[in-house]
């Protein structure tokens, strides 16, 4: 319940404040958002599996975001930032799909 409220509060805050993305953050924010989404779906699946732990969720959330940003950062330094971003997005996308498939089985039994 609180999680849903937090999500709603965050979205409303973003809509109301309309913050500008700092220039240094601009390449990393989209990847970070996708990584965080992956962590959230993973957490939801773990919750439905009955193995949810809030400490693990926090650590995985933060590490997902940091590692995704780090990969993009290193890729930019190496000159393959665009390709590496694509790779990260693809991997995270596959994970999100598989997690959502498990969640779907739990909720709809199908």
């Amino acid at each position: 319940m609180i999680a849903v409220v937090g999500l709603v509060v965050g979205i409303v805050l973003g809509l109301v404040l309309k913050p500008d993305v700092p220039l240094w953050l601009e390449p990393y924010l989209p990847i970070a958002v996708v990584a965080a989404l992956d962590a959230v779906f993973g957490a939801l699946r773990a919750f439905l599996d009955g193995i949810f732990n809030d400490k693990v969720f926090v650590i995985s959330f933060v590490s997902n975001v940091v590692i995704a940003a780090l990969i993009v950062f290193v890729g930019d330094k190496l000159g393959v930032g665009a390709q590496l971003s694509t790779g990260v997005i693809v991997v995270l996308g596959i994970r999100i799909f598989s997690n959502v498939a498990a969640i779907r089985r739990h909720i709809f039994h199908a």
């Binding site: 609180i2 409220v5 965050g10 979205i11 809509l15 958002v33 965080a36 989404l37 809030d54």
Partner: peptide, 26 residues
């Protein structure tokens, strides 16, 4: 029935929602 773990998850989800909306708007 809310719990402490949910509060932490809520904060993180709020952060995610905030970042997502920001990114979408920018």
């Amino acid at each position: 029935h809310p719990s402490r773990g949910q509060a932490v998850g809520g904060v993180l989800l709020g952060l995610l929602g905030f970042a997502m909306v920001t990114q979408v708007q920018s």
